[in-house]
Amino acid sequence: MHLTRFRLNTLRQGARRLLSSPQAMHAAVMGSFAAILPSDTDAPRVLWRVDRNARAEVFLYVVGPDRPDLTHLVEQAGWPTSSEPGWDTHDYAPFLSRLAKGDTWAFRLTANPVHSIRRADGEPTKRTAHVTPRHQMGWLLQRQDTSGFRVVEKPAHARRLPEGDEYELIVHDRRSAAFGKTERQTGRRNRVPLTTATFDGRLEVTDPDALRTVLTTGLGRAKAYGCGLMTLAPVA
């Protein structure tokens, strides 16, 4: 596995087009891997995430099975005449192998927090997005035990609120959008809603193998559209 970071030049039209369309970004990311064909339904999972740290500081992160070639992204949405490398790629395996139970890390995750509800008895369940920070946070906390980590709890004296401030966790960059998608079998064009939220926090590793699976295969749904990629960083 490899982890790649690419900075987008937000002044370029190509970058703005990619950032406005998760479908276009997905196609650009998948086009970075020569060995993965669009028709290959058994291809390894490729994860990606866009971090909007500031207006002119936007990064694309990609986790995939091989080293990607992002030349086309540099030409469309980077600095093609710069002498600096267009992207950084690192072998992910050494980092993943060092994860150990009890380690504490800062983390970031952009996800599609949804749940299934039934509005009336006898009706089929319907997938519905969580739209409030409280429920989005609850979505992540419900998945931590099976995902190999535990979000760090704040000591009582550090909590600013009596409820809702128990964890080293914030939710930000909450977005809702919709885009058209054509069904392969019927050719019908559907409108697909997409709700995303970015989580920043601290976690403690409880099951290294389970966490390695999350880091390489993603968490939650809508992975093709920039959701599910969790990254770790040393605690400051």
Rank of each mutant, 00 (worst) to 15 (best):
A197W: 01
W105A: 04
R184E: 11
D51Q: 12
G164C: 07
T186D: 04
W105E: 08
G122S: 07
A34G: 12
L140D: 03
A129G: 13
P68R: 02
V29A: 08
A236H: 13
F179N: 06
R119E: 14
R7P: 00
R55Q: 14
G218I: 00
T4P: 01
V152D: 04
G226T: 08
A77H: 07
E153L: 05
L140T: 10
N53L: 15
G218T: 02
T206W: 04
A106N: 06
L11Q: 13
F149W: 02
W105G: 00
L219I: 11
V46S: 05
D207H: 12
L203A: 00
E163R: 15
S21C: 12
E163Q: 15
N190R: 14
P85H: 03
V171W: 00
Q142M: 11
H90N: 11
S147Y: 10
R221W: 08
R150H: 13
Y225G: 00
A77Q: 06
D145S: 15
A177N: 13
G201T: 07
F199W: 05
A178D: 13
G180Y: 12
G64S: 09
G164W: 05
K154F: 03
L47W: 00
K101V: 14
A158S: 11
L169T: 00
V63G: 01
D103N: 15
E153R: 15
V192T: 14
G148M: 08
E163S: 13
D209N: 09
V62D: 08
V114C: 06
A210L: 09
A236V: 11
E84R: 15
F107Q: 01
G138T: 00
L99G: 08
V205L: 05
F179L: 11
T216Q: 04
W79K: 01
G164Q: 05
E183P: 01
L141R: 07
T213A: 13
D165R: 02
A158G: 01
A224V: 00
V131N: 07
F179K: 05
V46F: 01
A27M: 09
A28D: 04
V214I: 12
W79C: 05
S82T: 14
P113T: 03
A197F: 03
Y167I: 01
S116I: 12
G31S: 07
A27Y: 09
T198G: 06
A177M: 15
Y92A: 12
I36W: 02
R175C: 11
T110R: 14
T71H: 10
R188Y: 00
D200K: 04
Q144D: 09
G31E: 03
F95C: 05
L232V: 08
F149T: 05
P68E: 10
L18M: 12
